[in-house]
């Protein structure tokens, strides 16, 4: 293998690992930009991964063949919204502590997913291997560009979708009235309320969007990487997405950058096994690499946290 080929491969694998993280972190961004902390991303991802596996399985049994994964993909978004609704009702309407509810979502969603899996598949804690999952799409013409073609234009459909969503999110957040209002609600809810913006409505939208996107993130892992759902399908990816959100400073493009960085670190550890010189380094150090780098970058980053200023505070109009 020549160097260019390796780099092309590395980029390709990085994109696979990053896609789910970008979905989820973007979801978290909508929620947190509206002022609602979302520690529950992990649980929402688990929910999405579970729904995608089950619905894809049912759809393939119903004879949908190659379009079955798309059914699962959509189902993941819907199920994610339902779980996020729990978060929204308690934190926005009943002003419960957002961090606490996020933790609850994590416990509850995993419990429910495994419970349902065992109920649906006669006691087995894992869904069967899916007959149909997403295949990589090679984009005609572009795929033949040397290096770039292999690296960027032979990817899972989810990767193309998430990049589109990231770009759209940037415009929505910074170039549309909706985005302005969403940010206003997260920065200064009482002012937003004064000028007639419904804090409740925008926060609901933010949290439900996070459910849909994190659900898609979970579905991405099921439908491109594991091909089934079990208790360890997600194991911590949601927390890494949360880190990517903070690392990316709550900005869609920053979030994409941070998620790509985590994806690259994960890809590197797979590649480390291929070369003599890197085999000498204990594998655990490669596992640690992304997390150590993040700490170093965060510690060295200039400027303190750029979190939305009303993040984590329930909005109580009576206290205006």
């Amino acid at each position: 293998m020549n160097v260019l080929e390796v780099i092309g491969q590395l980029i390709n694998v990085t994109l696979v690992f990053s896609t789910a993280l970008i979905f989820t972190a973007l979801g978290g961004m909508y929620s947190e930009r509206s002022g609602v902390v979302n520690i529950g991303l992990e649980g929402l991802m688990v929910s999405g991964a579970f729904a995608a596996a089950v619905m894809t399985d049912y759809a393939s049994q119903a004879g949908l063949a190659a379009s079955a994964p798309w059914v699962g993909f959509m189902a993941a978004a819907i199920y994610g919204v339902l779980v996020a609704l729990l978060h929204a009702v308690s934190t926005i309407t009943f002003r419960a502590d957002q961090t606490v509810v996020g933790v609850v979502i994590n416990i509850f969603a995993l419990g429910l997913a495994i419970y349902l899996t065992k109920s649906l598949y006669e006691g087995s804690g894992q869904t069967p291997q899916l007959a149909y999952v997403f295949d990589k799409w090679a984009i005609p013409v572009l795929k033949d560009i040397p290096l770039l073609g292999k690296a960027f234009f032979t990817a899972y459909p989810t990767t193309y979708i998430v990049i589109a969503i990231a770009v759209i999110s940037y415009f929505v957040l910074f170039r549309t009235p909706f985005g302005l209002r969403l940010r206003a609600v997260g920065e200064h809810p009482s002012s937003a309320d004064t000028v007639g913006i419904s804090v409740t409505k925008y926060r609901y939208i933010g949290v439900l969007l996070s459910g849909a996107l994190a659900g898609l993130g979970g579905a991405t892992i099921t439908l491109t990487t594991t091909s089934s759902f079990a208790h360890n399908t997600i194991s911590g990816q949601g927390f890494i997405a949360l880190a990517a959100l903070i690392f990316g400073k709550w900005n869609p493009l920053g979030v994409v950058g941070a998620a790509l960085f985590f994806g690259l670190a994960q890809a590197l550890r797979n590649f480390a096994q291929l070369f003599e010189f890197s085999k000498q380094i204990p594998v655990e150090f490669f596992y640690m690499l992304p997390y150590v780098l993040t700490l170093i970058v965060l510690a060295g980053a200039v400027g303190r946290s750029n979190a939305p200023s009303a993040l984590g505070q329930p909005y109580d109009p009576a206290k205006r």
């Binding site: 009943f94 419960a96 606490v100 609850v104 419990g111 419970y115 006691g123 804690g125």
Partner: peptide, 27 residues
Amino acid sequence: AGVPSEVVRIVIGSVIFFVASHGLVKW
């Protein structure tokens, strides 16, 4: 009872949920 043990996680999650949303409980 043949019940998947994960149902306990659902119970625990719900309990904390209701403790946190005491507004909901009061309602």
